[in-house]
């Protein structure tokens, strides 16, 4: 895991500084009017950007590596010391505040979306080779073809503007959040049916053609029992791959949903930081993204072994 995270950091660092020099970062923070070189130098010293990128020829021994921008700015990430943003806000505190609204929005979207998509896929299997399956697949393709932005804008227009049932956007902490979360969750779930339904259908279809299903059917089990007792259970393994890997990333939020619904989550944190040329935030978010993804992969492996006793972690 650690070599992966180190490599991710190196790549982020190289990419960021190949586009933005420390001078550019200083200018972005100081504003572009009336800025002198003296001010840029002062800013770089205050924020630690006055060091060389990878190798400090002015130092001796190990200090040649230690007294560099890369070492100073990235190594502390491994002990979860995220430091402050270039604008001066503690990044760790910002993340801890913003991850919960993201999670509150993402968790129900994931769970309800999963239930709806699996149910829909099972229905398609149940009615396979009928006009209902064809209709369902056409609906899936239509739903997949529509841009997520369209779901959001039309959902807001219909539910919040035309029928005036729910707030268009906004957020309140704690239980009061439900009024603001309901619409984005509904939209998130509906927009995911096309893709999710088709994907899960493929998985279940593969299972439905296996011998054990034919045996179960020959034994006289009802179709529902076959679907829920056998096909669903065996089809869960690949579904776990896709879902468990997502769980840690639920904290990272959704850029579009959060921006349009005014949810104060982490969705736009990285994009905003890139626009503001705030490297301190970018490196932390990329590090966290990589870390959560690796944790997701690990959790997937663990869940495999739980779901299927034949699989053992070596």
């Amino acid at each position: 895991m650690i070599p992966i995270l180190v490599m991710v950091n190196v790549i982020t660092f190289v990419l960021f500084f190949s586009i933005n020099s420390p001078d550019d970062i200083a200018r972005a923070q100081l504003g572009n009017k009336h800025i002198s070189m003296q001010q840029i130098t002062d800013w770089k010293i205050t924020h630690g950007y006055n060091l060389p990128l990878f190798y400090n020829v002015k130092e001796q021994g190990i200090e040649r590596v230690v007294q560099t921008l890369f070492f100073q700015k990235t190594l502390k990430l491994f002990i979860f010391d995220f430091g402050v943003s270039d604008a001066g806000r503690p990044i760790g505190q910002d993340i801890s505040h913003r991850m919960w609204p993201s999670f509150i929005l993402a968790l129900p979207s994931l769970i309800i979306g999963l239930l709806v998509n699996i149910s829909f896929a099972l229905l398609l299997i149940y009615f396979r080779q009928t006009y209902l399956e064809t209709t369902g697949l056409i609906i899936c393709i239509i739903l997949m073809s529509i841009s997520p932005l369209f779901y959001i804008i039309s959902g807001q227009y219909l539910i919040a503007k035309t029928f005036q049932l729910l707030p268009i956007s906004g957020y309140e902490p704690n239980f009061a959040a439900w009024r603001y979360i309901l619409l984005p969750v509904i939209i998130g779930v509906i927009s995911g049916i096309g893709m999710g339904g088709r994907w899960y259908r493929t998985i279940f279809l593969e299972e439905a053609n296996k011998d054990y299903v034919k045996t179960a059917r020959a034994k006289g089990l009802s179709e529902l029992k076959i679907l829920f007792g056998h096909i669903l259970k065996n089809g869960m393994l690949p579904i776990l791959t896709g879902v468990v890997i997502l769980i840690p990333s639920l904290f990272l939020g959704s850029l579009l949903l959060e921006s349009f619904f005014g949810i104060p989550g982490l969705g736009s944190y990285t994009i905003d930081a890139i626009n503001q040329q705030d490297f301190s935030i970018v490196r932390v978010m990329v590090f966290l993204g990589a870390l959560l993804y690796v944790i997701g992969l690990l959790l997937t492996d663990i869940s495999y072994s739980i779901a299927d006793p034949r699989i053992r972690l070596s």
Binding site: I153, Q156, Y157, K161, I168, S169, S259, F260, G262
Partner: peptide
């Protein structure tokens, strides 16, 4: 002051 990153929801809320 509420953070509204997008124009469309902000505009609808003004009209409401």
């Amino acid at each position: 002051f509420k953070l509204e990153k997008e124009n469309i929801p902000r505009w609808h809320k003004f009209l409401q």
